[in-house]
Design a protein around this nucleic acid. Structure first.
Length: 470
DNA sequence: ATGTTC
């Protein structure tokens, strides 16, 4: 099926004015008319432009028509003169751009409080590693593009030595039962309750995403996503599962809601920008009022994407556990790109965590290191000053571009060999040297979480990386 | 992050 996208260049050629209608037209065509051919889409847009009045009552095209008839931009929403308070953990290791972004976020009229995690770096809107509590509003870019990006760790009863003596089998199963790459789909589809959810029928925009979601269920995507075998060491005698302290084989995965979540994020960010015109330098922080239809829709779609991401992890783990004949002893999992309704100083707020691990009192989570550095099983301390959050990893110290330019394949191989790690796929932009020291990051958040165990990667699979091949 | 865009 054709997937037509109308770009800005096309709109200019047709004669659309560069007012809010520009963005609206792109979003509506993408959301509801991508099945049309390019010619049909252009024809339709021309007809609306020629006679907007004829389309104002159209439930879908009406927004385009209205904005053509009323081409003046709605007034800009003003930021607070005085920001709400925020805290920063590990300030010495955080780049200036990330600080600037949280500084902007706490000036939103809906902001209640903020916090910056020690792995923070610059992103779109809210920085990665940014936490923001808002009043009755949700910021799509406060959640991020990969809605429900999360960690899942299965602790298994397999003998630790098998990871060394029978590594080839682990490599083989990991290769057969995971799928990586942007757009990756399984040929054979699996049924899952998440695909039966009513949101796929009730929300018009989400309806179009069902087919993609069904094909991508149980895939991992690209970027920093991984599935890996490794050694779990439980250090806390009083752990939640009554596991004897010691070593276990673990399966750890990191991925999100794939194309479906990305489309939801893109769509509702555009919609938020139309409905919530902020000053240009903070426009990515556009928010949706939860009392509006758009806000409610995003909330439902976001939760669906979160559950879908979870189902992806569970399918990956189910297949690998079955393939290795293992028994599941314990599982720890958490979203780190999401928004939750939580209590803050006696009031219900929307807590956005964009690259941050929920760390309410007694809440378990996983904070990964890098492909050669340990990850940590943590128990939250419920620290209010961090909005009950912790870092979601070590955080980058090098951009992808910089890592590709400065780390050599020989260096990557040497560090993998030094740590006894087998890497399937992967690229220089994900090399350990591109990340901060996880020990330093953990040391910056001892008020936020306690460590109850760690995970050392041994067999790692990631998407093929490096510079684009074509 | 996503099979790519103001």
């Amino acid at each position: 099926m054709a997937h037509t996208k109308i770009g800005g260049k096309t709109l200019l050629e047709i004669g659309y004015p560069q007012t809010p209608v520009f963005r609206t037209a792109m979003r509506v065509m993408e959301a509801d008319f991508s099945h049309l051919s390019q010619e049909e889409a252009i024809e339709l847009l021309k007809k609306i432009l020629a006679d907007p009045a004829a389309y104002v009552d159209d439930p879908v095209l009406g927004t385009i028509a209205e904005q053509l008839l009323q081409p003046v931009a709605p007034p800009e929403i003003e930021l607070r003169a005085t920001p709400v308070p925020y805290t920063v953990y590990g300030k010495d290791y955080i780049e200036e751009g990330a600080i600037r972004q949280i500084n902007n976020a706490v000036r939103l009229p809906v902001a209640v409080a903020g916090s910056l995690m020690p792995d923070a770096h610059q992103g779109y809107g809210l920085p990665i590693g940014g936490v923001l509590a808002a009043e009755n509003a949700v910021i799509p870019y406060g959640v991020g593009v990969d809605i429900g990006c999360r960690m899942c760790l299965s602790i298994l009863d397999l003998p630790e030595h098998s990871l060394y003596t029978n590594e080839a089998a682990y490599v083989k199963e990991l290769t057969s039962h995971t799928k990586f790459g942007a757009g990756a789909e399984w040929k054979k589809r699996e049924a899952d309750p998440v695909l039966e959810r009513s949101e796929f029928k009730d929300i018009r925009f989400v309806r179009n995403l069902l087919d993609k979601a069904a094909g991508q269920l149980g895939t991992s995507g690209s970027g920093n996503h991984f599935v890996e075998w490794g050694i779990v060491t439980i250090t806390d005698i009083n752990n939640e599962w009554n596991l004897a302290p010691g070593n276990y084989v673990g399966l750890l995965s990191h991925s999100g809601s794939r194309g479906m979540g990305a489309q939801i994020a893109g769509h509702y960010t555009q919609l938020a920008k139309e409905l919530c015109p902020l000053p240009k330098e903070v426009q990515h922080l556009a928010y949706l009022d939860l009392d509006t239809e758009a806000g409610q829709e995003y909330w439902l779609a976001m939760n669906l994407a979160g559950d879908y991401a979870s189902a992806c992890h569970h399918l990956i783990h189910k297949r690998l556990i079955k393939a290795t004949g293992a028994t599941l002893l314990a599982r720890i999992e958490n979203h780190h790109n999401f928004a939750w309704k939580e209590m803050y100083q006696g009031k219900e707020v929307i807590v956005h965590r964009k690259g941050a691990t929920p760390a309410g009192k007694g809440v378990l989570g996983i904070i990964p290191g890098s492909m050669t550095a340990p990850g940590f099983i943590v128990r939250g301390k419920g620290e209010e000053r961090s909005l009950q959050s912790a870092s979601h990893g070590a955080g980058r110290q090098m951009s992808r571009t910089k890592a590709l330019a400065s780390i050599t394949p020989q260096e990557l191989n040497a560090v993998l060999q030094e740590h006894g790690v087998t890497l399937i796929g992967g690229g220089l932009d994900e090399a350990p040297g591109a990340y901060k020291n996880i020990s330093t990051v953990m040391a910056s958040q001892t008020d936020l979480v306690e460590v109850i165990g760690r995970f050392i990667p041994k067999v790692v699979r990631m998407a093929d990386g490096g510079p684009p091949e074509d």
